[in-house]
Nucleic acid binder design. Structure first.
Lengths: 108, 108
DNA sequence: CAATTAGCCTAGACAATCTAGGTGAAACGC
DNA sequence: GCGTTTCACCTAGATTGTCTAGGCTAATTG
């Protein structure tokens, strides 16, 4: 119910991850992350759109205009090959770091 | 071996956590986090000292000048009552968010 | 006594997020 | 048919946190 801001630096990872299931438009990406996290994570539009732009610049995702399920014009993003590689990287880094933080929390 | 930068926003939590074991000076805090994370997390001094200052301003930690194990002058920080409360909060938030991110990574 | 280490500190750059707006068009209520 | 809500995208600017890259002093080491 209460919304938590994201951990800085994890947004790209989350976006890449949900796009791995197939192309989605921006709004849907935010909804998907919100739902999958059981409403814990809220992606603000002011964070999302600049992030999508950055990721596109880096060649991780590719946009294409289309129609949303609700009949509106929407920009669908899909993962590029580079994006898939990046997803693997960021996932590994997340696992490493989350584990490391867990270690500190447990043993300090 | 390779150093990873911290996840933005987790530094306070880590510092509070290691101070929960008793007062430490700045340098020792960084070493402790590095060691407990099995060298995965590296706290740069340029991040640490400003963070300590902020946390002190917020009343979470308290400094006291003393002597380090190596006989040098050093500033020892200890948790305040507020700091202990903050530790509990940040820990819960971390758990919630880390779990939520895990959910997304698993099920997207 | 020179060089290294321990320990603290700061200014400035940089990056990511959030706030708080705005736009246009489709759908919905009446 | 007309106003309101919803969908969907976008942006400027402020804020925050970290990093880079220094500098300082005093004690230890060689």
């Amino acid at each position: 119910m209460e919304k938590t801001e994201l951990l800085s630096g994890t947004l790209d990872l989350l976006v890449l991850r949900v796009l791995h299931g197939g192309p989605l438009h921006g709004f849907a990406i935010a909804e998907r992350i919100h739902a999958l996290s059981r409403d814990v994570l809220t992606v603000e539009e002011g964070s999302l759109y600049p992030a999508l732009y950055r990721m596109q610049e880096k060649g991780w995702i590719e946009p294409e205009w289309g129609q949303s399920e609700k009949g509106r014009r929407a920009k669908f993003y899909s993962l590029t090959k580079e994006g898939r590689r990046q997803l693997t990287n960021e996932r590994q880094t997340w696992d490493r770091v989350a584990l490391a933080i867990g270690d500190v929390l447990r043993n300090a």
